[in-house]
Every structure is written in C-alpha cells, then in structure tokens.
Simulated assay, not measured.
Amino acid sequence: MGNAGFHRSSIDIFESTEDNHMDSSHFLAWIDRTASPLRKEFGIYTKIVLVIDNAPWHNRLTNDTMPPKRSWRKEHIIQWLNTHNIDVPVKAVKAELLDIAMKNLPENDMKLMKQLKNTMLISCGNLPIKHCSLNPLELAWAGLKQYVRDNNVNFRLSDVRHLAQEWMLNLKTATVMAYLNHVYNIEEMFKKSDAFTEQLEEGLLDDDNDDELDSEIEEMTD
C-alpha cells in the first residue's frame, strides 16, 4: 500500500490451508513476483522502499547462516560444523557440538529478504517490534474486515475474496492519507515522549551528581 492505495498487481489473496499458508516460502515468492514489476513500472532510478513488520517469515536466514537446532541429530550437527570449516572433537557429545556451533555462528546473518532486496535494488525497512500502531496496514486491515462483515450475506469464501478485492480496489486516496497521517501523528507523539523522557533522565542524573558533589564538599570542610 502506498500513498495512492494498494498496488493492484501486488495484491495476493489466497485460501489458507494446511498445505497453503503464509510462511517464508510463500512470502518470498510473493516478493519475487512483485518486486520485479515494481522496478519495471517505476524505473531503475526511482527509490522503492518496502516497510515490513517482524513476522517470522520476514526474517528467515539463508541456509548458509541458519544455526543448527537442538532437535537435529548428532550427525546433522557434525555436518553443519564441517560445512562451516569448524573442527569437530572426536569424542564430543551432542550438547558439546551444539555449544561449539553456537560459539562459531557466521558473523554475516544474511537473510533471504536481504538477498532478494539486493537483486531487485529495493530497500527494506522494519517496523519497531511490537509497535503495530506504527503500521498503517493495520488500519486498512480493520477497514477491510469491517467491510466484509457488513456485506457478507452468503458466507461463501468466494464472496469473501470478492469483497476483499472490491474494498482494496476502491480504497480512496483520502482514506489512505488519513491512515498515513494517523500513523505519522503517533510517531510524532512517540518522538516527543522519548525527548521528554531523555530530558527527565538527564535532570535526575544531574541531581544525583549535585548530591554527590555536595557530599564531597561537606567531607572536605569537616
């Protein structure tokens, strides 16, 4: 979603099932087929920034940097250590091997999202953790659900899909700007709160320093 509303060719609506649900593979496939048209549409010199939250599928590591899991068999952990050119003690037990692996994790925690971003020349920014109030899509999501609830009279999945598409495609620019301005105002409120907190903390620290100085002066004069 941008200033003018949802990017129509990027919309992905699907039925969530056990075999077809949102995970890193689905998300990256969506990014892959979305990023390229965006770049072609706006040209190579236009800056494109994707702002995402911190869902697990947004932060999946590459196979090379993914750490071993405690559920792995000992042989699998040894294979991981060998792949990363880490010496494996002959008589080490599984717990010791895991400890060695954790102490020698690759420094470059390259994520699949970053890899894809580099190939498409698209920047990526993450929202602060547990700050959904800074995500305008949460407001859009609430509006979409309300529209579906108000107009879903037959309770068929096909109707839900149609209503969701209808709401997104008819979303007015004024409504989008209202969402964005609402989030902007919250961001400004957070900034002012942070600035006030910093001033308050500095004042408290200054008071502590003054008390210490007074105590030192009293000791010197006694």
Rank of each mutant, 00 (worst) to 15 (best):
L200A: 14
E202Q: 14
L157N: 14
G143H: 00
W167Y: 15
S158M: 07
S16I: 04
I48C: 07
D23I: 02
Q146K: 15
D208H: 03
W80V: 04
I217K: 00
R149P: 06
N152T: 00
A35N: 05
K191A: 15
E218P: 05
N154Y: 11
K47W: 02
S133V: 13
I44Y: 07
I186R: 00
H58R: 04
E198M: 12
L137T: 15
I52H: 05
T83R: 13
L50E: 01
N170R: 08
G203H: 10
P106E: 13
I52P: 04
T46H: 07
A140M: 15
F190N: 10
E218A: 12
R156P: 04
M1Q: 03
N108I: 10
T34G: 01
R149E: 10
L163C: 05
K74Q: 14
P68A: 07
H162L: 14
S9M: 06
L105E: 13
N3Q: 10
D210W: 01
L61K: 08
D23Q: 02
D222S: 11
H21K: 07
I48K: 03
T175G: 00
I44S: 13
Q79L: 11
S10H: 05
I186P: 02
H76W: 06
L81G: 11
F196C: 10
W30Q: 04
H7P: 02
D222E: 12
L163Y: 10
S10Q: 03
L112A: 09
S193A: 14
D159C: 06
P136A: 08
R60H: 06
P37Q: 06
P37D: 05
D99R: 14
S215K: 07
H21D: 03
L169V: 04
H182D: 13
R8L: 06
V148K: 10
H162V: 00
V183K: 08
S24N: 04
E212K: 05
L200D: 15
H21T: 02
H182N: 15
L28K: 04
G203M: 12
A95T: 14
V153C: 09
W141G: 06
N82A: 00
R161V: 01
G2W: 02
N3D: 12
I52M: 14
N20R: 02
Y45E: 15
R70E: 13
P106G: 12
N104P: 13
M113F: 13
A164E: 13
S133P: 00
E219W: 00
L204A: 09
R60M: 12
W167R: 14
P68I: 07
F14E: 03
E198S: 10
T83C: 09
F27P: 05
N181M: 11
H26A: 05
I122T: 02
W141Q: 04
P128H: 03
H182Y: 06
M220H: 01
E219H: 04
H84M: 06
S24K: 01
P68K: 08
V153M: 10
I129D: 01
D32F: 13
Y184A: 13
L134R: 06
D12T: 02
I122K: 00
L116Y: 11
S123W: 00
V148T: 07
S71W: 02
V93I: 15
V93D: 12
D214I: 01
D159H: 11
D194S: 12
F196Y: 14
R73S: 06
W30R: 00
Y147K: 07
K69T: 09
N82L: 08
D109Y: 12
L28R: 04
I129V: 10
N135Y: 03
M1D: 05
K111C: 12
G203W: 09
